[in-house]
């Protein structure tokens, strides 16, 4: 089955990102296809490479980046939601005149059309959040 995954909450405060990660990993393990993971609302905060959790805790952002690398996952951060919350890639940082970017490996910034497209192309769109 083709799944689209939507992550609507940030890391650590809320379990949504952990649950989405476990779901995505297990779906792939069971032979399903994840056509896209879309990060929206505070979910965009999963895409910063600057998080430094304590060493004895899981590293949510690294987990996503590694999963993406391993399975060639398409992980998209909503541009409008990201700009509000200070998540920038190199191009956006330049365009907005900011002195740094912070997008993590494996994530890309794009528009809400990518969410709608995931809804159209997936057999099931699964949302994680409140």
């Amino acid at each position: 089955m083709k799944f689209g995954v939507v992550v609507n909450e940030g890391p650590y405060t809320h379990q949504a990102s952990d649950s989405a990660y476990q779901f995505t990993k297990e779906a792939i393990a069971q032979g399903h296809e994840i056509i896209r993971v879309f990060f929206y609302h505070d979910g965009v905060n999963n895409g910063t490479r600057l998080t430094v959790p304590p060493g004895d805790d899981r590293h949510i952002q690294n987990n996503w980046s590694e999963l993406a690398k391993e399975h060639n996952l398409d992980m998209v951060v909503c541009i409008a939601a990201a700009q509000r919350r200070g998540i920038l890639d190199e191009n956006e940082a330049k365009r907005q005149g900011k002195d740094a970017d912070n997008i993590a490996e494996g994530f890309r910034i794009s528009g809400l059309g990518q969410l709608i497209e995931a809804g159209i192309q997936a057999d099931r769109l699964v949302t994680f959040g409140d």
């Binding site: 929206y40 409008a80 939601a81 809400l112 969410l115």
Partner: peptide
């Protein structure tokens, strides 16, 4: 942000 999705989605 839901309304923003609806407005973008309307183009599809």
């Amino acid at each position: 942000e839901a309304l923003e999705v609806v407005l973008i989605g309307a183009a599809f």
